[in-house]
Amino acid sequence: MTFDERVVVARVERLTLRELRLWVREGWVRPVHSLAGPMFDELDIARIRLLCDLKKDMSLSTDALPVVLTLIDHLHEARRELRYLSDALEEQPSDIRSAVIRTYRARQNQESGEGSDD
């Protein structure tokens, strides 16, 4: 299910058409392009609402917005990748699984040990 610009502006009350077009041009929102113009799905609309929150409620400046957005995107990517990784680990035989977890724990302790020595 996708929506055109006008429907998006109607659904997200705080949004103007000008802002939406600017955000698409900046690449902050990436709709699918069709002959009827850009089309947005629920993921894009949720992202537009987040942008409205950042820009309007938290009055983030236009310069700071892409920085925050990139950090959020990195965070989501890392979280998703970690989930894939733990899913992949989940499918391994139990001896491999516990060996990986042991190494991981050892590394965790080592890092925190070094930190306190400084």
């Binding site: 990436r30 629920e42 993921l43 949720a46 992202r47 609402r49 987040l50 995107d73 979280r79 998703r80």
Partner: peptide, 20 residues
């Protein structure tokens, strides 16, 4: 109830906005 962005971004479709 509003569906927050992280709800969508955590799913596979969220890859669209991955920086890498």
């Amino acid at each position: 109830e509003r569906q927050y962005y992280h709800h969508y971004a955590g799913q596979d479709a969220g890859r669209r906005y991955d920086p890498s």
